Amino acid sequence: MTTDSQYLETLLHNDIPLTREMGLQVVDWQQQRLRLQLPLAANVNHKSTMFGGSLYCAAVLVGWGWLHMRLREAGIDDGHIVIQEGQINYPVPVTGAAIAQCEAPDEKVWNKFIATYQRYGRARLNLNTQVRNAGSEEDAVRFSGQYVLHR
């Protein structure tokens, strides 16, 4: 685990205790892509698949974590990140460990977000995240969330 990954996992476990109970692990932060993992056992439902609420949390948290790490890289540490709204789809069940991931939005979108924040002290960013069964390339969850950064 890289120091960035360890930093984020510690932050999540300390600031959002639910993540510790869910068994959330930071897999990696590389090339502006964040991946988190959830074990099935701590998040299982009555159908022996992953609980939808846990999947929603993973989808939101990977976006939150991505934004936190990207802002950290940009040297911006004076803001608070909140999720304002989100839309989620569950096309297939998660039957084992889940991998949640978030990749960078278009560079123009990112630059506008930063410029807006620096000018007004508040900015919104839409991030798309996915959750997959570990080892699969098929999306089990698709999430689109609007995150707000404010001073």
Rank of each mutant, 00 (worst) to 15 (best):
D15L: 11
L127E: 03
D4F: 04
W29G: 02
V82L: 10
V82W: 01
Q6H: 14
H46E: 09
H46C: 10
H68W: 01
D28T: 15
M1V: 11
P17C: 10
E73A: 11
K108T: 08
Q101V: 08
D28E: 14
V94M: 03
N111L: 12
N89V: 14
T95K: 07
A115S: 15
Y90F: 15
M50C: 06
D77R: 11
D15R: 15
N14H: 15
V94W: 04
D78Q: 03
R70W: 01
W64N: 03
L18F: 14
N128L: 09
S136P: 02
K112T: 14
Y90I: 09
G79M: 00
V44S: 03
T129C: 09
R70M: 05
H150A: 11
N45T: 07
C57I: 02
I76L: 02
V148D: 02
L38A: 00
V131I: 13
G96R: 14
L40F: 01
L11T: 08
G65A: 07
A134H: 14
L38T: 02
T129S: 12
L55Q: 07
L12W: 02
H80N: 12
R72K: 14
H80G: 06
L34Q: 05
K108A: 11
P93V: 13
R124H: 11
A100H: 04
V92F: 10
A97T: 15
C57T: 12
H150S: 14
P105Y: 07
T10V: 15
L71P: 01
L36F: 15
R142Y: 08
Q32P: 04
G23Q: 08
Y147K: 03
D139C: 02
L40D: 03
L36K: 05
A140D: 08
H13L: 07
G96A: 14
E73D: 14
Y120C: 02
K47Q: 13
C57G: 05
R72Y: 03
M22L: 11
E9P: 02
L12V: 00
T19W: 01
E103I: 14
L8Y: 06
G53T: 12
L18D: 09
V62I: 13
E137V: 12
A41S: 12
S5K: 02
F143S: 05
Y7I: 01
P17G: 13
H150Q: 12
G145C: 11
Q118P: 03
S48T: 10
E103Q: 15
Q37N: 12
D28V: 08
N111W: 01
V92D: 10
D139T: 12
Y117E: 07
L71K: 06
S136T: 10
G86R: 09
S136W: 05
Y120Q: 04
V82Y: 06
M69H: 02
C102D: 00
H46Y: 09
Q101S: 14
G75H: 07
P93N: 10
L67F: 04
Q37I: 13
N111C: 00
Q146R: 15
T3K: 12
P39C: 04
Q37C: 12
Q87F: 04
Y120V: 00
N126W: 13
C57W: 08
Q146D: 11
R70Q: 09
S48A: 12
